[in-house]
Amino acid sequence: MRGARPTGTLTAALALATVLAAALPTAASAVGPDDRLDRGHAAVRADATVGPDRRADFTTVQAAIDAAPEGRTSPWVIALRPGTYHEVVKVPATKPFLTLVGTGRRAQDVVVSYDNANGTPKPDGSGTHGTSGSASVTIDGADFTARNLTFANTFDEAAHPEITNRQAVAVLTRADRLVFDGVRFLGNQDTLYVNSTAADVVARASFRDCYVEGDVDFVFGRATAVFEGCEIRSLTRGSTTNNGYVTAPSTSVANPYGFLFTRCRFTSDAPDGTVFLGRPWHPSNDPNAIGQVLVRDSWIGAHVGGTAWSDFSGGWSWRDARFAEHANRGPGALVTDDRPQLTPAEAKDRTPRAYLAGADGWSPRR
């Protein structure tokens, strides 16, 4: 793709397809790989446009981000026209309040992707990318928003048998107060890495009406993340016993809020009982990483069995983590001794607002 072309003052108001819902979405409205985002259109003002030809202000997403001003206190909107943008994208910490909006009718009309894995050699010969370095998109700018588009890591495991470290991140977040509406996250192992800048730093992210797919630990990290009305799809790895883990939280013991899934759908084409809801990740064997996950008021497919949580290698038991469920339904919503359930009283205060408010009272829908 070409870089930026000279631009003048951008004053035209552009009609952008945005994900606007008058009411909270239901789990059935989650954005699947072939679902349309028929949630209406709204006219908003774009500060820059990205497209596959010179009719747009920029031909790459990164060029538009590089041109955005630093230190914003209100949104700077970048409109992405339909197309596939094969590039590594980084949103620096110096550029808060960036908004990326796909202008297609569906989230899959705009795709931002790359294909690095943990074990992919760097072009300069200085080693491999590592898990964090494999990310197609890295978000370090606070108050970032993305709507109506797809983020993907397209690393082809079958085509690269020589690469054994196959973690391949689609999106890595390290910033606070992030919003994703109607966004698709595609990958295999380690698709969505929701993290923070340090173990004792809380970073919050809201995912609404999104679609996330992968196989091993494909939602992981120490951030506080709320998934509302999303589809969480586990890909099969062809095993008859273990087809992976949805989550791998590394929540700090000082943080009561890790991952909350509410009114979501957990789906898969894997055999019954071969997928786990999660396992506790202890980076560098950190004993203070006591993962927290709550799945509540959601539909769970038969791919999840009577034992929904798994130990992590190194002797870390899932029973020492903070894993729980509440009021789920579906063929995989079993209640067993290996699936801790919150009481109604305990669940009452475990809401999206409680997870996301923090000391500043942040509300992503305000």
Rank of each mutant, 00 (worst) to 15 (best):
G125V: 09
T103K: 03
D338Q: 12
T49E: 08
Q292D: 11
D338N: 13
N328D: 14
A168W: 01
V111L: 14
Y257F: 14
A23W: 01
A15E: 15
M1R: 05
R184H: 11
R177H: 15
A357N: 03
F261P: 04
A12T: 12
D181W: 11
V179C: 03
T84C: 04
L14I: 13
F151Q: 12
P287T: 10
P364Q: 09
A302D: 12
G229T: 10
V216M: 08
S136W: 07
T351K: 01
G214C: 09
K122V: 05
I300G: 06
P352E: 00
V169F: 02
A159E: 06
G278Q: 06
N153I: 02
S74W: 02
P92H: 09
I65K: 08
A321C: 11
Y245M: 07
R5I: 10
S74L: 03
A203I: 00
L24P: 00
T131F: 01
W362P: 08
T49R: 13
A302F: 07
A302H: 11
G306A: 14
P82C: 05
S134Y: 03
V226C: 07
H282G: 06
V226P: 10
F266S: 11
V183W: 09
P52R: 13
T241P: 00
D156Q: 02
H303Q: 15
R81I: 01
L260E: 04
P82G: 06
F185D: 06
C210I: 05
A333H: 06
L356Y: 06
D109L: 07
R350S: 05
H282L: 03
S126N: 10
K90H: 15
W299M: 05
D53R: 10
A225W: 04
S298N: 07
A13S: 14
T103P: 00
D349V: 09
T247W: 08
S29W: 06
R36Y: 12
S126L: 01
G119W: 02
A225F: 02
N288F: 13
C264W: 06
A23T: 14
R184Y: 09
T267C: 10
A63V: 02
Y85A: 08
V202K: 09
A254V: 06
V201S: 08
I163P: 04
N195F: 01
A48W: 03
